[in-house]
Design a protein around this nucleic acid. Sequence first.
DNA 1: TTGTAGGCGTTATCAT
DNA 2: ATGATAACGCCTACAA
Lengths: 340, 340
Amino acid sequence: MENKLPTIKEIAKRLNVSVSTVSRALSDHPRIGLRTKTRVQELAKELNYEPNSQAIFFKQKKTYVIGVILPYIREEFFSEAIRGIETLALEHDYTILLGQSFDDFEREKKVLDAFKKQRVDGVIISLSKQTNEYTHFESLEKYEIPIVYFDRVPPFKQVHKVYCDLRKGTIEMVNWLFNKGHRRIAFINGPDKIHASKERLDGYIDGISGKKIKVDMQLVERTDLTKESTHKAMENLFKTKNPPNAVITFNDYVHLDAVQYAKQHHIKINKEVLFISYANLPVTSYVAHPPMASLEQYPFRQGEKSMEILMELIKAKNEKRTLKAWFDEKIPATLITTRS
Amino acid sequence: MENKLPTIKEIAKRLNVSVSTVSRALSDHPRIGLRTKTRVQELAKELNYEPNSQAIFFKQKKTYVIGVILPYIREEFFSEAIRGIETLALEHDYTILLGQSFDDFEREKKVLDAFKKQRVDGVIISLSKQTNEYTHFESLEKYEIPIVYFDRVPPFKQVHKVYCDLRKGTIEMVNWLFNKGHRRIAFINGPDKIHASKERLDGYIDGISGKKIKVDMQLVERTDLTKESTHKAMENLFKTKNPPNAVITFNDYVHLDAVQYAKQHHIKINKEVLFISYANLPVTSYVAHPPMASLEQYPFRQGEKSMEILMELIKAKNEKRTLKAWFDEKIPATLITTRS
DNA sequence: TTGTAGGCGTTATCAT
DNA sequence: ATGATAACGCCTACAA
């Protein structure tokens, strides 16, 4: 058996002083004798004393841990977001607890519950594609655990959130295609429950309408983000007599699957049909057929911003300040077209 | 201000019983009156009592948290490994603290230190490419925090580790190329400090020697895993009078950069020169020029196995058992050649 | 069957 | 300048 770890109690005993003296000496309290202070500090160093943060956290009712819940970290968008979160966290002496929902609602609840048990100081979350019910988040209120939603955010006002303005971005995409001469613009959207799907669709409809073209709902398909579902959507689009000459896909992963379908069916990619997408992920620079344009959504910045807001909320809570308003941070998306 | 959270103390007071009674009633202690038991449990439910795990952890000196340190989660290999870890963790009611080293030694130390402060119950780590000094891990011994290394493991025996047998795997790769008629086989290896680089090189040399060919060290290059470094390595290989007709790259990411160079220099990929690689990542199925073969290293299984071993170590520690030996788990790698 | 009391490591509030 | 003590929430040996 190991000899157990040194505590202030131990130091106090050895030096024949009280624990409070030791505690104060170690934290450089002003009114403490210089002699005792150095004696304490030296012994502490000698014994390799390290304060037991668990005890401190317990007493302070803080953990210096925040929970991050994401659908998948293997998607570059989310791993970049984590990088943003983590970078800022380290600066603030925070550590992050990670949980993936794998786009599964039950799993999301389970992870959230585990985080609650762990008494995280705050939560940053990007919702699963199945989530359209939000009661499980209420249980965090009891513990006053602040939540910041990012990217995949809930559709109502009374929460703190960070996301890109996809309606505007989508209008920009439609305009870009229009200027290149495309009129039959298809749109493969994502799951209904993701609020950003609605945002995208609104942008699509507004963009098309703005050009005085009638919106043809035959050109609007939906995928559940699996390859099969995306292929099915493509099939629906291209089996008609009047197929599209441009396709906007929900994100770069959907793009990859869409393009795979196109290739298998001998559609001349980016010749006959132009493909553009959302996210602008680095991987796309290696793929056979990258999107000709992609809407950059700045995941790193979204992560950073979420963390920044969360820190603000935690600080407010510690100081027992009540915030007057909900953070609603819109990050402008940019259409990147530097593809060959 | 919120009314504060219910505690067993609160319940005890309301019911005019002692805290120990409440504590026992809640944990279904056998010798407790059925009446009191139900009374307690009902009030607990009514007040939405939830035990304060921080207090429990503090007392038990356990956190039910393990720390995971990886170079980059954006690499599919590592995000898959995390998935393996997380899946098993959830089953055991463990949560994972995530830290990325970004292949930076200082950062690795910083993260490890943060984890130590958090008193994680254990650590799973894949070393940064800069790590060739291991003293910072010793500080965990004091807290009896077990460590499991995986994939990027230290080069000595007295640690618990999980990794693929890359020497054998590399020999297999050489054989495969040989059978396809290739004789001038180049090898772009990774950083020296990564032990697996040595393993690969040994395999390469043994593989070539086994074919009674003389090993030509002109054909062996090294990359620090950046795109620039990989391009430089390619340049060195292909500027000679007698360039290779096959290239083995350190992993699929290096492969992508190598192939990019090849394309830019009009080398006919997989025609003039055959490219094969390590890792067999799913993304490669979307890229323009996937490797013609890739050595699958089963990241999910490696993650799972690491977690399994860690659970074993933690259990042993809790039961004050001492383990006789070091876990040294070799997972066989498989050459996957189902590329077109 | 239930209550009492001590302890986990630390800090803060009183005293002295 | 330093000491004694309570408190954080929970568990548990011991006492009744």
